[in-house]
Structure formats: structure tokens, C-alpha cells
Nucleic acid binder design. Sequence first.
DNA 1: TTGATTATGGAAAACGTTTAACCTAAAAGG
DNA 2: CCTTTTAGGTTAAACGTTTTCCATAATCAA
Lengths: 342, 342
Amino acid sequence: MSITYKDIARKAGVSISTVSRVINQTDLHKVGKTTQKKVEKIVEKLDFTPNVIARSLVSRKTYNVAVAIKDLEDIINPYFNQVISGIAGVLERRGYFLQLVRTVSAKEKALSPYYLKAIQEKRVDGLILLSEEAKNKDVIELFAKKVPVILVNRTIPNITAPSVLIDNEGGLYDATKELIELKHKRIVFLAGSFDFQLDKQRLKGYKKALKEANISYDKSLIIEGAFNFNQSATALGGLLKKKVKFSAIVASDDVMALACINLLNERGYKVPEDISVIGFNDMLLLPLASSLSSMKLPLVELGRKAATMLLSIINNDPIKEMEVIFKPELIKRNSIGINKKK
Amino acid sequence: MSITYKDIARKAGVSISTVSRVINQTDLHKVGKTTQKKVEKIVEKLDFTPNVIARSLVSRKTYNVAVAIKDLEDIINPYFNQVISGIAGVLERRGYFLQLVRTVSAKEKALSPYYLKAIQEKRVDGLILLSEEAKNKDVIELFAKKVPVILVNRTIPNITAPSVLIDNEGGLYDATKELIELKHKRIVFLAGSFDFQLDKQRLKGYKKALKEANISYDKSLIIEGAFNFNQSATALGGLLKKKVKFSAIVASDDVMALACINLLNERGYKVPEDISVIGFNDMLLLPLASSLSSMKLPLVELGRKAATMLLSIINNDPIKEMEVIFKPELIKRNSIGINKKK
DNA sequence: TTGATTATGGAAAACGTTTAACCTAAAAGG
DNA sequence: CCTTTTAGGTTAAACGTTTTCCATAATCAA
């Protein structure tokens, strides 16, 4: 059916090994110039591409990398989008392919989640884990099996793993501190979900900033918005309904911050005159929020870094640092101002 | 290094063929009940998963499907997101993996674009083409080579290919007609780009509606916004600057429509009092535009359909229809109203 | 009892590569 | 002139499966 080395070899009147050497440019000293040209011409003419499957079988390399997100709806999230975009760029430049896998199984009680399946079946050379859903136990097992894995914005207790991290604690500390400096005392932290490390770490930073300013921690100011617009609006709506007092909000994501601004406007509050708002990620993709202050993160760059590290590990290149930490940087725009109340 | 059939066979004291038969549940009449149990127990205990590469080599199936988008930034676009989400769901349920590939090559003059490379190297069993970038010539060649390919929202001249299409002409016809019924006469069509079939088709529908109403076609009302927020705002801004008169806008995408509403508000126009706006896709992901009227498309469903068709072709199942067409449906919300001017 | 059938299983080729080991003729070295 | 080296190859094993074909023992019908 399709062309193989055998065909090329026959047409060129040489052996299969010679064809392999010409195609891979290896051991070329074992091939005469004229033979080489002859083979190259035929490869060219037939537009031949070696079968990567057969190649993988012997080389044990697939040139395939899995990128794991929790659920496929997650690719809708601009955060993952940008990271994946960065990953993909590096992979392509280095000749690798990108396989998108999920960490949750399909409802029908699949045996193992897809991201594990991809590795068990040896479909991929490595894995970039963008999701926190993957169980610690499973991830530890992967490390034990020497599977190249990069963790993104997630750690495993007591283990130093190759990872690209975000200084979540520092980020929320900086954001909170800025608001405190603007005389805010009752600051809402709209987290995504405390099921995630990321928000636990951020809460730490929030508390730290409060403590330093001798502001007491009020649990009722902490709410969860599931990283999406609607649930964030609902959460904030709940707070308003309960008449909880506050003059500022830090959100764990720009979309969530946007939901706040939107709801506040609807309810007659002005941002930043009445309420200050700071987002996270600085995604800039919603020009509607062109005045949103945010903790900026170079997400595309972060993806690039993760991919580069993974490829280093896959190719046994020396790796400079096991953990790379990106520090969010506060971008001040028009959504924050001095607290004038009281 | 890793476990193979050989190991299982040795431990079970049976042949490799027997192991294969048990694992694949094929030719089970050739395996005794007790032998089967014995093998199964060992497979279970060792947590063995067959090497999919070796398997692919002989079966000529990779259980891998490529989904091609133009550029990786495209996954940021909610349109692709939803379609891919639909595709991924079906693939996973049927045991297939999803490979994300681009139709444009990396800048460094790569030989062939990645989506072609994936096929040439036999990495994938089929391809879903979400991008119009892929050249007709290349796509035709794929069909000639009997590669399973599904086209999404794109056709190839003179060829009936398996495809999932959108009734673009009908969609814009309906939108325009609605506005005409609301007494609008000068209607802006904010297209993405006329490099694309999709917008050419939509323009056709737009013109058709005008013609039926005896409204003359004014080319200056046709602008392009590159399917993104900023360029759409710029395009509309240009129109305003030139003082072109209009009372309604149909945009080729919700984000673009949003850009219009945003700019109009900034410039002091009210929607829908002064200007009516209709979007396309009805993505609903920007609750900020909760009142945006839009031509709704079941994008996730569309992705599902594409994946289902592809798998049918891959597995030589009879395929019901070569072309499935999704008709956009006008969802009326608060962004349109009767034209009161003149 | 004999021949046919059935149940159970193994051996080996094949898939398309890579690569280690081997071969030969010519060139070089002494 | 003989030996060694080098250039330019070839052969064949290996990678981990699937699958066709063959083998044997037990069972069955007559």
C-alpha cells in the first residue's frame, strides 16, 4: 500500500540500511556520495516520509507530548489557552506533537484517566500536567517510573519535582497589600476553589498581608467563584445580599474580577469609587475590562518554560533548575482607588 | 525495561499468542477457561498495558485523530473551543486520542505544515480540519490518498467531501432580514475576513436579503474585523470617523459584536435605541453581553458530529450523509429594536 | 476400532524501522 | 609483496505486537 524503505532500497539498488542512513543522515561515512544522491533523489521524487510508528518501536521515542487539563472545557479558559499556546510553540519548533488529554475520566467509569492511559500505552514521551485534578498518588507513581513529567502551578508534598510554579502567595500578598495601602480594610478574596493548592496558597498571602497591617481576618469575606463568570457573580451576590461590608475585592482570575465589576455596576456601585477590584493573570483578552488592575503573569512564557524543561528531561539534557517560579506583577489600572469611606 | 507479552507469557507458562488472545478477547475459543484466568490474573497483577506503538505497527491503526486549527492562538477563540470540546468528548468515549496540529508552518519555513506531517508520518488515523488555511490542493491530495478527513465549515470547489457545514448564507440572510423588518435600511456587515469562504457566503446572504427588500447594496457598509475584538473596534471606528450613516450592525462573531457595542457605548450611542446589533455563534460566554442577539449555532454538537463522522469513515462504517449542515437560529435579545430614525 | 471433529494451544511470519555486526575490494603502509 | 586500514556497503536481529497456519490430545460417531 504505502511506500517503505524497502521500495526505496529496491529502486535505488541498495540495501535498506543504506536508505536508513541517508534518510537519517547517520553514519554517512558508510555511504558513498553518489549512492547518497541517488537515494535522496528517489526519496524526493516519491515524496517519501518514514513511518513514525515503526521508527518509534525501535527508537522508543514518539516525539509526542501529552498536555493534561482537567476537563476539555478547560481549554475554554484563557489561562490554559495561553499556557498551551506557549507549550505548543516550543514543541513544534522542536519537532514534537501535542496530545491533549484529560485528567478526569469519562463518566462511564473508564479504567484509568486518559492522561495515564497515554503514558501507559507509551503514546507519549512525556507529560505536562496543567491540572490539579491528577491525584498525588498517581503523579508520584509516574515519577517513580521515571516518566518525564512537568508540573505546572502545582506541587506534590515532600517531593521536589520538575515544575513551573506561580508565586501564588506572593501574588495575593502584593495585591492585598496594595489595597491596604489604599486604606482598604475590608477586602474580599474571591477565590476559585479551595480544593486547589493555588487558592490555599493565595489565601496565605492574603492573610499575611492583613496580619502585617494588623487587620483582623474575617472569614466571611472569603468566597469561591469556581473560576468562572457566573458562579463568581453568584458568590458576590450572596455577599451583597447578606449586607457584608467591604470596599475592595481581589479575585483569583480576571474573568472572575470582571464578573464582580459587572455585578457591582448592575447594583449601582461604582468601580473604583465605591469598590476597588484587582484580578489575576492579566489576560487582557477582554478589552471590556481595559481598566482592570491585575496580577500579571507571563502565561505564554510559562508554557514555553514548561515545554522546554520537559524536552530537556526527555533528552537527558542537564536541567538548570528543578523549579522555576514566576512572580505575578501588579499592573495598576483604573479599577483601584483610595478607600474614602470612614 | 518495561513489561511485554513475552514476560506475561513466560510467567503464565503459555505462548505469546495466547496472551494476545486473552488481552484482546479475540479467538477466545482457542483458549481454555483456566488458561484465560491465569493470564488475566497476571496481567492484572503487573498492571500491564500493551504497547500501543507495536500494536499500531501491525494493525495500522493509531487510535489517534488530528484536529487542525490555523494557529495555536486559535484555541483562544471560543468558537474553536466549543467545537474541539465536542470533538474531544466523542473521541474519548470511543477510545481515541486527540492531537492538536496547526495548518500554518512554524515561521522557520518548515517543510510541510504540521497537520500534513502528522498524516504523512502515519501518526493519526484521520483529520478534522477546522481551519480554512489548509490549501485546497493539499486537501484534495489527502482525499485522493483516501485519508479520512472531515471538513468543518469549509468546502472544496467541485468536490463533495465529508463535511460539517454551517449555513452561513442563510444565517446572514435571516439576521439581515430581521433587521430589515425592524425598518433598518443601512445595515453594516462586520465580517471577519473575506479571505474566508464563510464570510463570502455570509455576504451573499446579506445581499440577498437586501435585494429582496429592494435596498441597494452599499459597499461602504461592509467592513472586516479579523474575528477579534480590537480589530473590530478599529474597523467600526473607521466607519464612524468617516461619518458613514447606519442604524444596525450584523457581525460575524459575538466577540466582534461585543466590540461594536462597547465602542458605540463609548461614543455615546445606545444599543438598541440608536443602533441595533446582531452577533454570530451565540457563544454566551461573555455574560457581559447577556442581551446580545445572535445567530445561535450548536457548536459543541457540531464538533460531536464531525468526530462521529470521522470515526465512521475510519472504521468503514456506512456514513449516512456526506454533508451535514447546521442552520443558525436567530436568538432575539435586547440588542435589536425598531429603527426610529427617518 | 477408526476416522473425523473439537478444544486448546504453539510457532513463526509480518508490520517498517534502526543498528550492531559482518563483509569485500581497494588503498595505504611497511 | 604482503598486511592493515578504510571506504562502502550488506545481513540480520531487534523493537512488541497481531494473526495465520499448524499440532496435539481428547472426544465423538459409526
